[in-house]
Design a binder for these strands. Structure first.
Length: 794
RNA sequence: AGGGAUAUGGUGUAAUUGGCAACACAGCAGAUUUUGGUUCUGUUAUUCAGGGUUCGAGUCCUUGUAUCCCUGCCA
């Protein structure tokens, strides 16, 4: 996990001793299968704990009895274990603590912090008000604790029907944060829970989640950005219930993946409509599907590790995932050959069948091996010369249809009529005769093996026609044609035939169904191609879960569900990168593997806007008058605006009585002191500012010195001018002295100094900073600047 | 509209907290290659906009703009 704002917080907390160790948790709701979207969140939770020597919990957030099932619990835990996580005994269920939550709810009621409300759902929503309309108290808001307790107990006892009452926190009905307008804590739901049995009241997320964090001893509770507003409830609860030490919630931005959807509802729809074969259809983004596809846990984790963390929702380039998958497979998958779309070649001068011995690994993977050993498909590590398999070469072989062209495009490095090409490991052949079918397509090539000396531009793969194994090949491609299938994709042009009529007014008369926003129409019609071809016989001896690179085709493995000994089914995990296909015009592409031109996805980013003229801010007449008064004093325009609009700053400035130094004092107040003034941590007296300004005006201190002193005085309360006096601060402008320091600094950074002398002017700032550091900020910047220019220039 | 959050190359993140705008992926060019793969080398391109403070601003101040979240008895 690369450093991020959360690790920063953790390091601070660990250092200050706030917590003895980090405890995190990943809290999925068991109402669906884990998918690539969860990978990032779980990785952040788990890996962060690992990194700081803490522990991590897996927790099932199963407070909604209508959604949670044991099947999902098992599946999620299984997938996460597959990813390599081990939470030991720290596997929790929210439902294990229903009894304890209940006790805390009673405590809140007794404290007067919660009440039973008895209005309908609709009414409650109406009473909550709107963002600019404060809520109105429900008629039941002032029930006594006794009354509430009685009602709440009877709720639990099952005396009421669904929705008749709710328990609500009593917080603030007029809060601008809607979450704080007396959120519901418990609802009545006569549904039995898959684990907890016959409860009829269920805790809401906002009540349950913080409590569960606290009960587990979680320290840093990470969740996604949409819960920012909920943090107020979290903190309120922790405070009211007196948890100490207590967990804190931190929010991070979600990470989506291009060409992928993660909405449970939409994924379910794909299955229900038969658009994919199930939750483990290899095209699905679920972990089950990626497992079946053949992606390894190491690759998934490498992917997760590469994604950064911050507080913005972002969509990650699919290439990052593909890169992780390929990088993992390159050194994991032995090379063998398979022909997916066969074209028969007769080797007319091959008299006897041969058994070739070909290496599993290309030269570069061999070179990469640290111990010189290489894996056999079974996993055994052997010396390079033993990492081989037998491959039969017979008079009839198959090559790939796309590896022969009657009229080759420019740059074609494969077989052509009369041309030469190397059959991997079997020598060079020349196509002497081509037999065509009625449609003019080649059906048989008669070729002859040529001596090595003739040379060949390219190498193609092949299998023996008589001694290879028939197999089905499933070629998967991305499920969607567009990078953001859940967005609007206004520039969806990759399917010209289906492009709807452009309707600038957005008033299409046939717009009854929201078809345009329907993600299904972005499905890639070629996301699955099934081919029947042949694979070399060596694979029959290998373990079922061997991942191969079929040379020049991609990475494959046996479909763990559908492949049989007598009916091999290989699924393509991922293609090889193909810079040849990329360079070809669209029509000539061999397969649909090319990537559609990037249609800029919907609103992930502010689409560059015309230089919208900055609207003039609105000022009240009072502000206007105050600004003019300040301007009259000599205060700069920007500073005047700030002082006039922020009463805290304005007032502080006024106390200063700056007189002739008004402009300088105003600048300090606005630019350097606004932070401490607003946070209320300032100890500096405004009346002390003019004296400092006077020193600056006289030239005895620099503005850098003034700034530094100001910062210190804001903390200590000492008059800045007095601090200058006491610390003996003054501008250091003695040329000889400065030159000595500059030389020292240059000597201390020889590499940079050389680059600087060589003309890298950007280093000016670097050296200036070094000089300032060396002199405690007292060097005369102007003088140092000219010294440095001399160095760079001469 | 009220509140909240965010903004750095095409994409995802860094930047010693005011001092060389960097890393990875993608792109482009070249080298190596019995995989149009891999690897290696080089290279293009970035601080949302305007203003201010400063010797120096991605970072501080200010005014805007854009995007996302919040008005479930879901999580």
């Amino acid at each position: 996990m690369a450093p991020n704002f959360i690790t920063e917080i953790i390091e601070r907390d660990l250092e200050s001793g706030k917590y003895p160790q980090v405890v995190t948790r990943f809290p999925p709701e068991p109402s669906g299968y884990a998918h690539l979207g969860h990978v990032f969140a779980s990785f952040l939770d788990f890996q962060t704990a690992v990194q700081y020597g803490g522990r991590y919990h897996l927790r099932m957030d199963d407070t909604n009895p209508e959604l949670a099932t044991q099947e999902y619990v098992d599946a999620i835990a299984d997938d996460l274990r597959w990813l390599g996580w081990d939470w030991g005994e720290h596997f929790y269920y929210a439902s294990d603590n229903f009894e304890r939550y209940y006790e805390y709810a009673e405590q809140l009621i007794r404290q007067g912090d919660a009440y039973v409300d008895s209005v309908s759902g609709d009414e409650m929503a109406a009473l909550r008000g709107t963002p600019d309309q404060p809520g109105t108290p429900s008629p039941y808001r002032e029930r006594t604790p006794e009354e509430n307790l009685d009602l709440f107990r009877r709720m639990r006892a099952g005396e009421f029907g669904n929705g008749e009452h709710v328990l609500r926190a009593k917080i603030d009905l007029s809060s601008p944060n809607m979450k704080l307008r007396d959120p519901a804590l418990y609802r009545i739901l006569h549904v039995s829970h898959y684990r907890a049995g016959d409860w009829c009241i269920y805790p809401m997320y906002d009540f349950q989640h913080p409590l569960q964090d606290a009960l587990e001893g979680v320290t840093h509770s990470m969740c996604s950005l949409e819960f920012v507003d909920n943090r107020a409830i979290y903190d309120w609860l922790m405070e009211r219930l007196g948890f100490e030490p207590r967990p804190h919630q931190y929010e991070f931005g979600r990470r989506g993946l291009e060409y992928t959807i993660t909405s449970k509802r939409k994924l379910r729809r794909l299955i229900e409509e038969g658009l994919v074969s199930g939750w483990d259809d290899p095209r699905m983004p679920t972990l089950r599907a990626q497992r079946r596809l053949g992606v390894t846990p190491e690759a998934v984790r490498a992917f997760a590790a590469q994604i950064g963390v911050n507080r913005t929702n972002r969509t990650v380039d699919l290439a990052v995932y593909e890169n992780a998958v390929r990088g993992d497979l390159n050194t994991r998958a032995p090379r063998v050959m398979a022909v997916l779309e066969p074209l028969k070649v007769e080797l007319t001068n091959l008299t006897e069948p041969q058994e070739l011995t070909l290496p599993y690994w290309p030269h570069d993977v061999v070179a990469l091996s640290p111990d010189g050993l290489l894996s056999l498909p079974g996993g055994e590590r052997v010396p390079a010369d033993q990492a081989v398999r037998g491959v039969p070469l017979t008079r009839e072989v198959y090559i790939e249809q796309s590896d022969f062209a009657l009229s080759p495009p420019k740059g074609f490095k494969r077989l052509t009529q009369g041309g030469m090409v190397r059959l991997r490991g079997a020598g060079i052949i020349r196509a002497d005769e081509v037999e065509l079918d009625d449609a003019g397509q080649p059906v048989l090539i008669r070729a002859s093996i040529q001596p090595e000396e003739v040379g060949a531009a390219g190498v193609i793969h092949w299998v023996s026609a008589g001694q290879s194994v028939p197999a089905e090949f499933r070629l998967y491609d991305r499920l969607f044609r567009v990078p953001n299938p859940e967005g609007e994709n206004p520039q969806d042009a990759s399917s010209p035939l289906e492009t709807p009529e452009f309707d600038p007014e957005g008033m299409s008369h046939e717009g009854d169904a929201p078809v345009s926003s329907d993600f299904v129409r972005f499905l890639n019609p070629d996301s699955l191609r099934v081919l029947h071809g042949f694979v070399e016989p060596s694979v029959l001896d290998d373990p079922q879960d061997t991942r191969y690179q079929f040379e020049r085709q991609g990475y494959f493995w046996r479909d763990p569900v559908d492949s049989r000994e007598e009916g091999l089914v290989f699924g393509r995990i991922i293609t090889l990168r193909d810079s040849w296909a990329k360079s070809l015009p669209r029509a000539e592409k061999v397969s649909g593997a090319g990537r559609p031109a990037v249609a800029d996805a919907n609103g992930k980013k502010a689409t560059a806007q015309a230089p919208a003229e900055a609207k003039a801010p609105d000022f009240t007449p009072q502000e206007q008058a105050e600004m003019e008064r300040l301007r009259g004093l000599g205060v700069g325009e920007e500073d005047a605006i700030a002082l006039a609009r922020d009463p805290q700053l304005g007032e502080f400035f006024a106390q200063g009585g700056a007189g002739a130094h008004a402009a300088q004092v105003a600048a300090w107040v606005v630019n350097d002191l606004s932070g401490v003034l607003r946070s209320g941590t300032n100890r500096l007296s405004a009346a002390d500012l003019p004296a400092l300004a006077e020193l600056l005006a006289q030239g005895s201190i620099s503005s850098r010195i003034a700034k530094d002193v100001l910062a210190r005085s804001a903390q200590s309360g000492e008059a800045p001018a007095a601090a200058v006096e006491r610390e003996g601060l003054k501008v250091m402008s003695d040329a000889g002295e400065l030159r000595r320091i500059v030389d020292e600094v240059l000597a201390a950074h020889p590499a940079e100094a050389e680059a600087f002398r060589g003309g890298k002017r950007a280093l000016q700032g670097f050296f200036m900073g070094q000089v300032m550091k060396a002199t405690g900020g007292q060097a005369d910047a102007g003088a140092v600047g000219s010294l440095l220019k001399e160095v760079a220039g001469g």
